[in-house]
Amino acid sequence: MYEFLTGPVLWLTFAVFFIGLAARFVWYVRGLDWKLDRVAYRQWPKYGIRGALRSIGFWLLPWGTRSWQVKPVFTLVFFAFHIGLLVTPIFLLGHNLLLDERWGFALPTLPAGVASFFTVMVMVAGLFLVIRRIALPEVRILTTWYDYLVLIIAVAPFATGYLAANHIGDYGFWLNIHIVTGIIWIVAIPLTKLSHFLMFFLTRAQIGMDYGIKRGGMKSKGMAW
């Protein structure tokens, strides 16, 4: 089972991941229309690139925008959640051992304590996001079952990985469940709302170009995000 999951299934998983994201990228960019969107995307590359980079850059910085600043606690949790989600799987020792075994190379790895901390951080932050969805009326009215599903998909590999790594319960069982949830996690990125893994950069670039080219970018220092 383990060999099968980390062999052919994993190959298929990565194929879906990369092809799916590439398709999303092409579909999005090709669907941009200067006349319908009313943005002269191609005419002003300098203003467009500056606007796009500003729009992405400020939002990648914790408290880099006014929106982040006015919600400091949410911002802290939000960044903790996303950093944990992205950094932990890539730099986890266990994953890199597998990588080394299969492909003969490995990335630098996180000390076990840090990885463990990040994993717990993701779970706690995920719980916070669930509570926030229930507790705040302005978030509750927007929330659908799909939002919970996406959260479960995102956090599941961390919960199962934590159980397996700490040998809580049956190691072999949790390891396989961890791999399955991990595969779902990777496949869900291009196929669900988790596509914001890529689409964040594209939508931010688009609105940045909109402001950079059309809505004031030529007459100001750039949008004050």
């Binding site: 960019v29 919600k71 949410f74 689409m199 939508t203």
Partner: peptide
């Protein structure tokens, strides 16, 4: 004819986080 990728993505990608409320 007119509902293309920018608007489609905006509608479908919204994470329902509610940060727009106070704005």
């Amino acid at each position: 004819a007119t509902f293309k990728s920018r608007l489609k993505t905006w509608l479908s990608i919204c994470a329902h986080c509610g940060l727009c409320a106070d704005s």
